[in-house]
Design a binder for these strands. Structure first.
Lengths: 165, 165
DNA sequence: TAATTAAGTCAACATGGTTGACCTTAAATC
DNA sequence: GATTTAAGGTCAACCATGTTGACTTAATTA
């Protein structure tokens, strides 16, 4: 437990710092998802489809179960979203030859193009932010956000160890 | 425009760095909202109610229009959520004496208690993360996330200028 | 052969977004 | 004083994306 108040009426500096973190998360996430949402609308897709496209693109050959484990949604919820992406031919599936129950999901060329369009907007946002904030700040950003993630999931984010100079 | 690939087949180090930022945002936001969601369930409230409770608590006397401007949702969507919070007496409203069309929203004692319960879990997550990452990292985290926010909204996050020592 | 696992399906429902039309009250402006 | 504007609210319909629960099929493993 943490003492969040230092006096009855005034918020402590500590509390201000922590609330600032909370608000940064809210506003940053809101704006971070804004541009992709606008693109998705043109394809009659939503944010849920973006997440699937992103993680399939990032993990070619991923199975449905692995995808569920990343997204933390139910199979039924994924199936609606994934079904549409397969039907619209953004995503291909083929059986895993080693275990034919498993399906290997991957992006089609069309899917790769959309993934690029969506992710570009977010990458460009990070390019600007990293440039504005500086290399040292980027390292701090990574350290704090990694610690915000539940310990068991931290390894999911591939670490970038080599430093640019 | 930014060159996001340095070679046709292999993702560049630059692209890896940017994708790492994207994934940190996804996983951190997912876990950051997980604990409050569990508490909200006990009150038959959802994440939307949490956002309203948070920002009304943070800005006592805020008007509906100002709240809409923070949340970026429609009046109709807010009214459903806000209406329930008023009915359940988490939030009080009274007319602004200077302009009686405006309503001043504030948390009741019951609302403050819930706000505290919800926000505590997120503040404790930040306490741990700030401690793990260190003071220098915290400054970097703030700089990067601030730059991720659209410029016109950066001032919404109150800056913490005084450094702890 | 039996049990388990991966995947999928159907149905019903909840939450929290959206658009559009319309109303009331109060304040500001002509 | 009359008109316009602003703040807020309301009703209805719809949509996206999450949930639970029950059940099926095919393939692998014990």
């Amino acid at each position: 437990m943490v003492d969040l108040k230092s006096s009855p009426d005034t918020a402590s500096l500590r509390e201000e710092e922590l609330r600032q973190g909370i608000e940064l998360m809210f506003y940053a996430y809101r704006d971070f998802t804004g541009e992709p949402d606008a693109i998705l609308e043109q394809y009659a897709l939503g944010r849920a489809h973006h997440r699937v496209i992103y993680f399939v693109g990032r993990n070619p050959g991923i199975s449905v179960t692995e995808l569920l484990d990343i997204l933390r949604i139910t199979k039924q919820s994924l199936s609606r979203v994934l079904g549409k992406l397969i039907e619209d031919e953004f995503i291909n599936q083929r059986a895993n030859p080693a275990d034919r129950r498993r399906k290997q999901l991957s992006l089609s060329d069309k899917g790769k193009a959309l993934e690029h369009a969506l992710t570009s907007t977010q990458m460009e946002r990070f390019v600007r932010a990293y440039r504005e904030a500086g290399d040292e700040a980027v390292e701090g950003f990574r350290r704090v956000l990694t610690s915000i993630i539940n310990p068991e999931d931290r390894a999911r984010v591939r670490p970038v160890t080599i430093r640019r100079t």
